[in-house]
């Protein structure tokens, strides 16, 4: 079928791809919107997607069966796409957020943001960065993450920033699939065997302390995640009820000596991922994700 492409070198021009995922998109910041606030907001949502995507992609070839392996890789890809657009949007709104690179470096702004910031400059929730566990762990992580992200993107479809509104409208369709996938697996594991239920409850107990951070108040531009609490609870309670799993109590991860997964006491008192206060799991994740790009700051990909 592809004979017509035989010997056509342009067909193999991978890696010369769109330098800018917003090529041709009008990125003028609308009147009345503070560019720095818009950039900060997009960075927060973009970092959530990027770090979650990286963790999900670590599942490649490790899922219990091929279908779920493909599912996790697809979700990682959707989130990577959202991250690219959001980081590019942040850079276009406020070029001041982009780390400086050697003069003449061809690295585009979204890559500079992804590969040339250190852990404390990332604004993702800690739920996205904690180390992977078993399959129940990724199901619970995706459920908590997707329920909150879907509620937020639904509201952002009417954002005064047209770029963010468009990213949100598209993201809603994608995250709906992620959330429902996680919800179905939550139910399946809860009602499967004693072992699957034990693992699910263990994962929920480990990850629940990070849930509140998804809904932490954010002031300035954008929908405040704190206002989503009601609708997020409705969906989560629905999953818990159908699965016959008790909703865990609310205790923030920093309370009463409760150490986040992989914690080493580096966390700032009261700080969250939104403030750049991360668990010890983020730095090794970034080291792996960034090493090649940092080795070649003037490389063209």
């Amino acid at each position: 079928m592809n004979d017509e492409y035989a010997g056509d070198s342009s067909q193999w021009a991978f890696g010369t791809g769109f330098e800018d995922p917003l090529a041709g998109v009008d990125t003028t910041v609308p009147q009345g919107v503070d560019p720095a606030e818009l950039a900060a907001y997009c960075l927060m949502l973009g970092d959530d997607a990027l770090i979650m995507s990286q963790r999900l992609s670590e599942w490649c070839s490790r899922a219990p069966d091929l279908e779920e392996d493909i599912a996790l890789a697809n979700m990682a890809l959707d989130l990577l796409g959202q991250a690219r657009l959001l980081l590019a949007r942040a850079a276009a709104a406020d070029p001041g957020v982009v780390p400086a690179l050697p003069e003449g470096s061809p690295v585009p702004a979204e890559d500079a943001l992804a590969f040339f910031r250190d852990a404390e400059q990332f604004r993702n929730v800690r739920l996205a960065e904690v180390e992977n566990g078993d399959f129940a762990h990724v199901v619970v992580r995706l459920l908590l993450f997707s329920v909150a992200r879907l509620a937020l993107l639904e509201r952002l479809r009417t954002s005064p920033d047209q770029v963010l509104a468009a990213v949100a409208a598209k993201g809603v369709k994608e995250i709906t699939y992620h959330r429902d996938w996680a919800g179905r697996w939550f139910l399946t594991l809860a009602q499967g065997t004693e072992e699957s239920r034990r693992r699910l409850e263990t994962a929920l107990e480990a990850l629940w302390p990070y849930q509140a951070e998804l809904l932490a108040p954010h002031t300035g531009f954008g929908v405040d995640p704190a206002t989503l609490r009601g609708e997020v609870d409705v969906v989560l309670d629905q999953v818990f009820a159908v699965s016959g799993v008790e909703r865990p109590g609310d205790a923030p991860p920093s309370d009463a000596g409760r150490e986040p997964i992989g914690g080493t006491g580096r966390e700032l008192p009261g700080g969250t991922g939104r403030d750049g206060a991360h668990t010890a799991a983020l730095a090794p994740l970034l080291a792996e994700m960034q090493v090649v790009a940092r080795a070649h700051p003037s490389g063209r990909w």
Partner: peptide, 30 residues
């Protein structure tokens, strides 16, 4: 889909076919 990895290939294919057809300057927008 937002993460569609085929976008760059689509862009390259469009540019290539249009150049073959005699359109030297082609811009592909998202």
């Amino acid at each position: 889909y937002t993460g569609c990895p085929a976008m760059a290939t689509m862009r390259d294919d469009l540019v290539h076919r249009l150049r073959e057809a005699g359109f030297d300057r082609v811009e592909v927008r998202i």
